[in-house]
Amino acid sequence: MSALREVQRRFGAALSSADGEDDVLPLLAGDEGRNQALLSIYRATSIANATAALRLAYPVCRQITGDDYFDALARRYRAACPSRDGDLNRYGDRFAAFLDGFEPVRALPYLPDVARLEWSVHVATTAADARPAGGELFAGLAPEALAELRLQMTPGFALHASRWPVADIWLQHPSEAGGPHARELTIDLDLPQHAVVWREGYRVRVGALQPATHAFWQALVEDAPVGEAWAAASATDPHFDLAAAIAQALAGGWLHLPVTPGAPA
């Protein structure tokens, strides 16, 4: 099977870069000039497929950079972080990390964090459907039992902490369906922001969170019990309002089945 592997290695190299063509052309039958042109069509198709997938996952980044710049970024990303999966919906998971280290986007310092947020949105779009828990989750719980309670979030729930106003940036960019996600916001680029992503039915929502509220949910996501998460939130802001945080979570459908000590997960 090594002959087939060698053919595919060389063919693959020619899809990555025109430099690889010289090693493939001797393997091909027919006119060399024509084959060279056809290899470039294969290369363009592979690039176009990867670019289209990245556009789908990062519509806000694309609006920020403009189409041409985004497509150029997509090519550089493909070269640095090639697809590893036959399902292109999974392509793009390393885009934010790629942007972190990509010098030419320094003029848009918030872009990597916007990309991180968009990937969470992308993942939430296809996350498992779940029926959120309601207020009965907490009904009749003694304070000690509440403090010991561990909470599970509905699939797609994600938290972000950024030194940029990522939630506001995402919310003010039009969604695919047209029209902005929310009302027009005045964005203060000096405003660090915590953000939350969640699924409401089939719709993915994004919102800003107070730092203490973020600390609370972050602790719970990391499997701390409510008491510990409350302490973490209160350390961030002594005025943290536990009841308001829980009410927001119930209204948004963030909470899933409870995982209590001793109960099977």
Partner: peptide, 15 residues
């Protein structure tokens, strides 16, 4: 479409 852990996400020919 796949070689050495990389996927080209296209329908590629072979001998």
């Amino acid at each position: 479409g796949r070689i050495d852990g990389r996927h080209y996400n296209d329908l590629l020919p072979f001998p």
